[in-house]
Design a protein around this nucleic acid. Sequence first.
RNA 1: GGGCGGAUAGCUCAGUUGGUAGAGCGGGGGAUUGAAAAUCCCUGUGUCGCUGGUUCAAGUCCAGUUCUGCCCA
Length: 306
Amino acid sequence: MYLIMGCTAGGKSRLAFELAKRLDGEIISIDSMKVYKRMDIGTAKPSADKLEVVKHHMIDVVEPWDYFGMGVFMEMAEPVIDRLRKEGRPIIAAGGTAMYIRALMEGIFDGPPTNAELRAKLEKQASEEGSMVLHSRLSEVDPEAAGRIHSNDMKRLVRALEVFELTGKPISSFQNQFRSGNLRYPWKLIGLAREKDEGNRRMNARVKKMVADGLVDEVRRLVDDPRGLSDQAAQAVGYAEIIKYFNGEWTLDQAIEKIKINTRRFAKHQRTWYRGFQGVQWLDLAEDDTAEGVADRVMKDIINPS
RNA sequence: GGGCGGAUAGCUCAGUUGGUAGAGCGGGGGAUUGAAAAUCCCUGUGUCGCUGGUUCAAGUCCAGUUCUGCCCA
């Protein structure tokens, strides 16, 4: 079982593909946006012929208007992992959604899933009375979580209160998986690292290519569908900005520039997450490294280190 | 050539009646347990265009000068 992580546009998918071919394995995508059907260009999904050659899981599994989150991801991914392990097939998990990576590594707590009505109620209250109200309520029922969650961090306050209201127990009493240091499966963790300037060049080139490949038309098609996009899908880098262009908030050039900036931020965010992961074997990649070459290195140094 | 306005942080700009500068954006760092490509936190010394002058004290007033925008010839 191999788990490949790294910054966006760093070559994870291509390496996963090469390794899967060599090992005759299957790929599990760890990506919160590639799960959506018809969001292909902006999420840098593997090409249709690559999807033909190697079995990929967790790609195109929900509709763009569907809710998707970490809980759904784990519900769908864990049975696949269990089945492949039983069959003795190599698993190559690869992707850039760090929270899902952490979940695959250490598991998630056995607690209640999201509850839309409850969230709406809490959000409404927060917008009317301020997030401080939520924070002070959390302080009463779960001082530990309140100490960790900033009073402005609405999303975490809402989830913490949601768990409390649904179970009567503080979220901090559930949250014991992450940072446990125990891998749920015997993953070999592989990281792809690149120098920052080189990474930025690749990201800019990728954005340029996405636009040339028809990103704007792809987003147009998605928003033209009466069923629209779920909140999660509409947040994706490359989609959120083009939607603002459609709404007249930005010019196309501004939107494209914002996509580049937000891609860089995404990568920065990923770097911060990865720094906290233990036991990752990092490979420094250079501009002229090919996926085949990197796969050879991984086979020789990590998979079969004689 | 004449008139008016700009010139201050990488960018866009604030800077009150003179007391050696501050916002947004970008950049950097961090948190992160069912929204996570989300959300949140921390982080601002820069020849105040240049040269003189007035003043205890000038981004701020005065003179000159350079560049720049607009208007008039």
